[in-house]
């Protein structure tokens, strides 16, 4: 029998933040999510990559592959994040090398096996979950640099009512023509450059009477503990600062001006 309301939880960018992942999974279950999707980028940034991977796999999260996971899975030379600033690349490389060295082969094989996209049915809605954009895994779709007509084009071309993506690290959504929608579901791995420590995931609900509703849900977790573990693993101090301050200290060059102005650096 078909349930009257369907509810799914979605997030991306775990970046090895297993403490936030644990908190988000608990919260999503408490709120009655029937399925949980992770849109990729399990590693980077944080400590002990295996912990997040074990949690993801043992909790039956339905996962797709992000650029980071493709890189780690295949042991590519870098994370394919596309940073243009040498300083960003320096820090990205440190955490990439750490993550690659500390991820079990079994998890890496699992990452290689994941699809790049997933088609989801939510009530009558055709939902397409991808990592960066449906056409390119590492494409940045920022709120302030993505026109509405471009998103209309994507939903039409990919036959979807809703497109879900992550990759940029900052959640947002836009209503499109014909009641269609684009949603960046946010990331669990690091805060959003707004001075708050919490991270975000997204709950999608379809009710026949209401249609689709989208809720961005803040996740509180023990950021102090994560920071201590990052220090103990000798991960860059700049990353630790982001976890504690809520402001990005690296990867700033890829931010468009609106998103960058919300931050401090």
């Amino acid at each position: 029998m078909k349930q009257p309301t369907e509810r799914i939880a979605c997030f991306g960018g775990v970046y090895s933040n297993y403490l936030a992942l644990e908190a988000a999974l608990r919260d999503a279950q408490r709120r009655g999510a029937e399925r949980i999707y992770c849109l990729g980028d399990f590693g980077a940034f944080g400590p002990h990559p295996n912990r997040s991977l074990e949690l993801l796999r043992s909790s039956n999260v339905i996962a797709i592959q992000g650029n980071y996971d493709q890189s780690i899975g295949h042991a590519f030379a870098d994370c394919q994040c596309g940073y243009t600033d040498p300083r960003d690349n320096h820090f990205a490389q440190l955490s990439y090398d750490y993550t690659l060295a500390h991820t079990n082969e079994d998890h890496r094989a699992w990452m290689r096996s994941l699809p790049a996209q997933w088609r989801i049915e939510l009530g009558p809605l055709r939902v397409l979950a991808c990592h960066g954009s449906p056409r390119k895994m590492n494409e940045f779709l920022w709120e302030s640099t993505t026109s509405t007509q471009f998103l209309d084009h994507l939903v039409t071309q990919y036959d979807a009512d809703v497109i879900l993506a992550t990759h940029t690290g900052i959640k947002w959504q836009r209503a499109l023509s014909g009641r269609r929608r684009f949603i960046n579901v946010g990331v669990l791995g690091r805060p959003e450059n707004d001075g708050h420590r919490h991270v975000w995931y997204t709950m999608l609900e379809y009710a026949p009477s209401e249609g689709l509703s989208v809720e961005f849900i803040p996740v509180e977790y023990d950021a102090g503990r994560l920071a201590r573990e990052m220090v103990a693993e000798r991960l860059p101090g700049e990353f630790v600062e982001t976890i504690l301050s809520g402001y990005w200290t690296t990867c700033l060059e890829v931010l468009p001006s609106k998103e960058r102005r919300r931050g401090k650096h």
Partner: peptide
Amino acid sequence: SNPSSQSAREP
């Protein structure tokens, strides 16, 4: 293009 609109080369 602006850095915010660039993506890394595919491997």
